[in-house]
Simulated assay, not measured.
Amino acid sequence: MLVVLTIVTSVAALALAAWCGFAAYRDQSTKDWHFIGMAVVTLLALVQLIVGIVQLARGEKAEQGTALFVSYLLGTFFCVPAAGYMSLMERTRWGSATAAGGGVLLAVLELRLYDIWGG
Score class of each variant (00 low, 15 high):
V104R: 04
L88P: 03
V70E: 13
V70I: 09
A107S: 09
G75A: 10
L106P: 07
K61I: 14
F77G: 05
T66L: 06
A57E: 08
G75N: 12
V104T: 04
L74C: 08
A62N: 04
P81M: 09
G95Q: 00
V70A: 04
S87R: 00
F78R: 12
E90F: 00
E63F: 09
G75Q: 09
P81T: 06
E90Q: 10
Y114H: 01
L56K: 04
G59S: 03
M86N: 00
A62H: 03
G103E: 07
G101C: 05
Y85I: 08
G59Y: 01
R112D: 07
A100K: 02
L88H: 09
C79S: 09
R58M: 05
E60L: 15
E60K: 14
I116W: 10
L73A: 11
A99D: 01
Q55W: 02
G59A: 11
S96N: 08
L88F: 12
I53V: 07
L113R: 10
L68A: 07
R91K: 11
F69V: 12
D115E: 15
A83Q: 10
L105F: 05
Y72L: 14
Q48P: 05
C79D: 05
C79Y: 07
L106D: 00
F69K: 01
Q48I: 09
R112A: 11
S71I: 14
A67S: 02
M89D: 04
G84F: 03
E60V: 09
G95A: 03
Q64I: 05
Y114N: 02
P81H: 00
S71V: 13
A99F: 12
R58I: 10
Q64D: 14
T76Q: 10
Q55V: 02
L106K: 04
V104L: 02
Q55G: 06
Y72F: 15
T98P: 00
G65C: 15
G65K: 09
L105S: 13
L88I: 14
R112G: 12
G59V: 07
V108Y: 12
W94D: 15
M89N: 12
V51G: 05
W94V: 15
W94K: 15
Q64R: 12
G95L: 03
V51F: 07
L106C: 06
F69M: 02
G103T: 02
M89K: 09
K61A: 15
A57I: 10
E110K: 11
A62F: 14
S87G: 08
K61Y: 13
I116A: 04
A97W: 09
A67P: 01
L113T: 03
A97V: 00
T66P: 01
L111I: 11
R93I: 00
